[in-house]
Amino acid sequence: MPLSVPAGRAVDLRVESVDGALARVERSLQTRIDPNTVVRKRRSVGARTARDTWVRIERRRLDKIGTQGWNGTECAARLQGIAQPEWRGCLVWRGPDESVMWRADETSLLPGRPIGTAVLGEDPELPDDWWKAFNTSLDSLAAQTTNRVATPDTDTITQDLVTESIRSAVPGDFDTTIAQWAPAHADLNWANMTGPVFCLFDWEDWGMAPRGLDSASLWASSLVVPALADRVRRERRADFASRDGKLMTLFACSKILGPDAHPQDPRREPARRMAEEIVQELLQAG
């Protein structure tokens, strides 16, 4: 049977049994899952199949799905000019006695291994060709159109969310209004990209977002390695130089400095310094 727990209890799929969900996916997609390849994350599980594809299974509460649904990987299949896995199909079901839904998306295999964890602890020493493909994909994504709205951390991004997040962690009397919105991956970190061949995956939360969200998110996940964080800022300098990009950098800093952040996060000090610098720039610009 699929995992069944009280709806009010937080679930971490890294420790909960997912045998029932894996068995259901095998039956419905008519393939076998290689148990030696299973990768567990907090709200998702992935594994290789016997037909050389990858299946990602996610559990999400109904109140986190919203009106636009949660078919981000399926919708991303139409995007052009982006290095991403080929989408093959999906399976969706509702858990018994739960206010949650399960979704399994089957895609082609990645061209390499994920670069690291969401927050990287050492320089991956990526080749210049990787950075070129990275920039091409992000620029292509930002140039496209969609009715989807990004849901970073499963929260729909809005002007109010941006303002509240920044105000909760960054002092200063400056305007937080976003001027430019564009399509974004919305979960851009080192766990969702491959190397040495670039590929961007896990598209569940993509949609319209303030300019610079992806660049700022990747910068924040690089702060433990200063040279890498600097490289992200150089590669995406147009985003970071824009007013919206500065606000998104503060938004990323708020995740590290805010009231719910981990007090021992090693990124706190560089995030604090950057936040102070940006606030001064915004105040001077008026």
Score class of each variant (00 low, 15 high):
residue 9 R to H: 04
residue 11 V to P: 02
residue 19 D to P: 04
residue 21 A to M: 12
residue 22 L to R: 10
residue 26 E to Y: 03
residue 35 P to C: 10
residue 36 N to K: 14
residue 38 V to M: 10
residue 38 V to N: 05
residue 41 K to T: 07
residue 42 R to P: 00
residue 44 S to W: 13
residue 44 S to N: 14
residue 56 R to W: 11
residue 63 D to M: 05
residue 65 I to K: 02
residue 66 G to E: 07
residue 70 W to S: 09
residue 74 E to F: 08
residue 77 A to M: 10
residue 80 Q to F: 07
residue 80 Q to P: 02
residue 81 G to T: 10
residue 84 Q to N: 02
residue 87 W to N: 11
residue 92 V to T: 15
residue 98 E to K: 01
residue 99 S to H: 06
residue 100 V to W: 08
residue 102 W to P: 12
residue 102 W to K: 13
residue 103 R to P: 10
residue 104 A to P: 12
residue 104 A to C: 15
residue 105 D to I: 10
residue 106 E to L: 09
residue 112 G to Q: 10
residue 112 G to K: 11
residue 114 P to I: 11
residue 117 T to S: 12
residue 121 G to M: 13
residue 122 E to D: 15
residue 124 P to D: 01
residue 127 P to Y: 00
residue 128 D to N: 01
residue 132 K to M: 03
residue 134 F to A: 08
residue 138 L to I: 15
residue 138 L to V: 13
residue 140 S to K: 15
residue 146 T to E: 08
residue 147 N to E: 10
residue 149 V to C: 07
residue 149 V to W: 08
residue 150 A to Y: 08
residue 154 T to Y: 14
residue 157 I to M: 06
residue 159 Q to S: 04
residue 162 V to E: 02
residue 163 T to Q: 10
residue 169 A to H: 06
residue 172 G to M: 09
residue 175 D to W: 05
residue 175 D to N: 13
residue 179 A to E: 12
residue 182 A to K: 10
residue 184 A to M: 11
residue 185 H to E: 06
residue 185 H to P: 10
residue 186 A to K: 09
residue 188 L to S: 08
residue 189 N to H: 15
residue 193 M to E: 02
residue 197 V to P: 02
residue 198 F to H: 04
residue 199 C to W: 09
residue 200 L to P: 01
residue 201 F to C: 09
residue 204 E to P: 03
residue 207 G to P: 07
residue 212 G to E: 04
residue 213 L to I: 11
residue 217 S to E: 11
residue 225 V to E: 12
residue 227 A to L: 10
residue 228 L to M: 14
residue 230 D to P: 00
residue 233 R to D: 01
residue 233 R to P: 00
residue 239 D to M: 12
residue 240 F to A: 07
residue 246 K to S: 02
residue 249 T to K: 01
residue 257 L to E: 03
residue 258 G to H: 02
residue 262 H to R: 05
residue 268 R to A: 00
residue 271 A to P: 03
residue 274 M to D: 01
residue 275 A to F: 09
residue 281 E to Q: 14
residue 282 L to Y: 01
residue 284 Q to S: 12
